[in-house]
C-alpha cells in the first residue's frame, strides 16, 4: 500500500491498551481484552450470529467452517481485541499484517447488531490502536465501502484520513508510530 500517511503523535498517544472496562450507553458492563485462545469459540459464535446485511466486502464469511478458517488466520497472524459482555463476545477489532514489511497492518472492526450504537465500536478502536502502538505497528490502513456511513464516521472520528478515493471503496489510513 502506498500513499501519504497522516502522522500525528498527539493523536496516537491518546489510545490506551487493553484491558478496558466501561459501561456502554445501554448500561451494560463491557470489558475489552486482547483475545486469548480461550475466547476463540465465543468469538466464532458472535460471527455465526452476525447479521449478513452487516457484512462488509465479503467478511465475515458465512458458515461455521469458513468463519473458523477466517478467524484462525486473524488469530495466527494478527492483533485482536474483543469486547466482552460477561462471557459473550459483543465486538471484535483486528489488525492483520500486510506481509511485505511487518509494519503495515490492515484493520477491520465488527460489533454485533444488538450492541451497535452504544459506544463499543469507539472503545474497540481505542483499545486496538493502543494495542497496535504498543506492539510496534507503524501504519494502519483499511478499505471501506462509501455507503458504510457508520464505519466511515467512526474511522474519521478516530483520525483516519482518506488516502485513495478513486474506486468504489475508500482507502483510509493512520500512522501510529
Amino acid at each position: 500500500m502506498t500513499g501519504d500517511r497522516p502522522h500525528s503523535d498527539e493523536q496516537a498517544d491518546r489510545f490506551s491498551e487493553p484491558p478496558q472496562t466501561f459501561e456502554d450507553r445501554e448500561g451494560r458492563e463491557i470489558t475489552i481484552r486482547a483475545l486469548d485462545p480461550d475466547g476463540f469459540d465465543a468469538l466464532a459464535e458472535m460471527y455465526a450470529a452476525f447479521d449478513p446485511a452487516d457484512r462488509a466486502q465479503g467478511i465475515p464469511p458465512t458458515g461455521e467452517d469458513r468463519i473458523e478458517g477466517w478467524l484462525e488466520t486473524l488469530v495466527d497472524e494478527g492483533l485482536n481485541v474483543v469486547a466482552w459482555d460477561g462471557d459473550r463476545a459483543a465486538g471484535h477489532a483486528t489488525l492483520v499484517p500486510d506481509g511485505d514489511d511487518g509494519e503495515s497492518y490492515e484493520l477491520a472492526i465488527f460489533v454485533l447488531q444488538e450492541y451497535q450504537e452504544s459506544g463499543i465500536g469507539g472503545r474497540l478502536m481505542d483499545a486496538l490502536l493502543g494495542y497496535g502502538r504498543g506492539n510496534g505497528v507503524e501504519n494502519v490502513w483499511l478499505t471501506v465501502e462509501r455507503w458504510n456511513t457508520a464505519a466511515v464516521n467512526l474511522y474519521e472520528k478516530v483520525g483516519f484520513e482518506t488516502t485513495n478515493a478513486e474506486s468504489f471503496e475508500l482507502e483510509m489510513s493512520f500512522r501510529l508510530n
Binding site: 467478511i59 506481509g99 474506486s167
Partner: peptide, 15 residues
C-alpha cells in the same frame, strides 16, 4: 482479489 484480511477488493478494470 482478497486483502490480507480477506476483504474482496475490486480492481479498476472490474470497476
Amino acid at each position: 482479489q482478497r486483502s490480507p484480511m480477506g476483504k474482496i477488493q475490486l480492481g479498476s478494470i472490474t470497476e
